[in-house]
């Protein structure tokens, strides 16, 4: 089974791209699709209706979406394999930009909109830096020069990334992406790992302590004024 993980900010065009990928491979490959989101997601229903592919969604709830992915991915892959899927597409919400959802196998695709702002690639950190492929969407809305300026900014963050530009609604010039998916080797669940490094630790707020004031808390916490001598706060 091949694996494709798609990440990117809300409204970048992840689902439009997913639909184009599904259109390109369905029904030659049996496709399973997992959507990870925080509050609300309809993409699974849309895809199910439009293409009758196998879909599932999970709300990360109290976990961050990338953390949720790490937790459920084992079962999710098992689910896809039990259903004899040839291609498993995971669409992540990827919100805080600290981590990235890509694994050490399969393809990691970051989706960026042409109009997201010129500093977006730098701000998105690991989501761009650890992706295999960047797909720039909505290219019909900007000039060629501006597209090339954005591409250069993405290359500054990740010189080796494979860059593609598309109007994802029409699925323009995505042949190369389909070739890359076609040629990506099957995954081996036993050696599947998160590609990036997770955060160093968690904080007491994250584990649910509600008390106010420094003395109740410990972990990796920065003070508001930034003057704290020790970055690593160990509690008082």
């Amino acid at each position: 089974m091949k694996l494709v993980i798609i990440a990117g900010p809300p409204s970048a065009g992840k689902t439009s791209l997913t639909k184009q990928i599904v259109k390109a491979f369905h029904p030659d490959l049996k496709i399973a699709y997992l959507k990870i989101d925080v509050v609300k997601a309809y993409e699974d229903i849309e895809l199910q209706k439009e293409f009758q592919v196998l879909t599932k969604k999970i709300y990360s709830g109290d976990l961050c979406p990338d953390h949720a992915e790490v937790m459920v991915m084992g079962e999710a892959i098992q689910w896809a394999e039990n259903n004899h899927a040839d291609l498993f597409i995971v669409e992540s919400a990827g919100l805080c930009l600290r981590c990235s959802p890509y694994l050490n196998q399969g393809l990691g695709i970051v989706v960026l909109s042409s109009i997201a702002g010129i500093h977006a690639p730098e701000k998105m950190g690991a989501m761009v830096a650890l992706a295999d492929i960047a797909v720039v969407t909505k290219i019909d809305l900007v000039s060629q020069a501006e597209r090339e300026v954005l591409i250069q900014k993405i290359k500054d963050v990740h010189p080796g990334i494979i860059l593609l530009e598309t109007n994802a609604l029409q699925g323009t010039s995505l042949n190369r992406l389909y070739e890359l998916i076609k040629n990506s080797p099957p995954i081996d669940q036993k050696t599947l790992m998160l590609k990036g490094n997770p955060p160093l630790g968690t904080c007491t707020i994250c584990v649910g302590k509600k008390e106010i004031g420094w003395k109740y808390h410990f972990g990796i916490v920065k003070k508001l004024d930034g003057l704290a001598a020790e970055y690593l706060y160990r509690g008082e």
């Binding site: 042409s114 109009i115 702002g117 010129i118 500093h119 900007v142 000039s143 020069a145 501006e146 090339e148 300026v149 954005l150 591409i151 250069q152 900014k153 290359k155």
Partner: peptide
């Protein structure tokens, strides 16, 4: 143009891209 750049920065990044 949507890029939050000055004219000269925009052109210099584009020149770099080309």
């Amino acid at each position: 143009c949507f890029a939050d750049l000055s004219v000269e920065d925009f052109l210099s990044v584009h020149a770099r891209a080309r």
